[in-house]
Measured scan of single mutants.
Amino acid sequence: NQASVVANTLIPINTALTLVMMRSEVVTPVGIPAEDIPRLVSMTVNRAVPLGTTLMPDMVKGYA
C-alpha cells in the first residue's frame, strides 16, 4: 500500500506548507503520494485542512 500525505496539524487556508505540517501514512482513500512531500513544501492550501486529513491534489494550489 502506498503512503499518502496527511496533515500533522490543523493547516489554515492559504498557509504555505512546511515539512512539520505533513506526515506520511497509509490511508483510504489514497491522497497525494508521500514521495511528493518535498515538492509540496512552500505550496499553499486552498482550504483549511484539519489534523489527520489526507491531502488531496485539489487542496494544494499548483499541485494538480
Rank of each mutant, 00 (worst) to 15 (best):
S24M: 08
L19I: 06
L19R: 12
V27I: 14
V49G: 01
A7N: 01
D58P: 06
I13T: 08
T18F: 03
I13C: 10
N8Y: 05
V5F: 02
A3W: 06
T44M: 12
P29H: 04
P33I: 13
T9Y: 12
G62F: 07
V20L: 15
T9V: 10
K61I: 14
T44Y: 13
P57T: 07
R23D: 03
P50Y: 10
V20M: 15
T9Q: 10
T53I: 12
T9E: 14
I32M: 03
L17Y: 01
D36I: 06
M22I: 15
N8V: 10
N46M: 15
N14A: 11
L10K: 12
N14S: 10
K61G: 07
N1I: 15
V6R: 04
A7Q: 01
P12I: 05
T15C: 05
S42K: 10
A16W: 07
L17N: 00
Y63K: 03
D58Y: 13
V27K: 12
M56K: 10
L17H: 00
V6D: 00
V6N: 01
L10D: 11
V49P: 01
V20F: 15
L40S: 00
T28L: 08
T53M: 15
V60T: 02
G62T: 05
V49W: 03
M59S: 05
V27T: 12
L51Y: 15
M21E: 03
T9K: 13
L19W: 13
T28I: 10
N14C: 15
A7V: 08
S4Y: 03
T28Q: 08
A16N: 06
A16L: 07
T54Y: 02
I37H: 02
P12G: 08
T28R: 03
S42C: 15
T9S: 10
A64Y: 04
N1V: 15
M56Q: 15
N1M: 15
P38W: 12
I13E: 15
A3I: 08
N14E: 09
K61E: 12
G62S: 10
I11W: 01
S42T: 12
S42D: 06
V27F: 02
Y63N: 03
Q2D: 15
I32C: 04
P57R: 09
T53C: 11
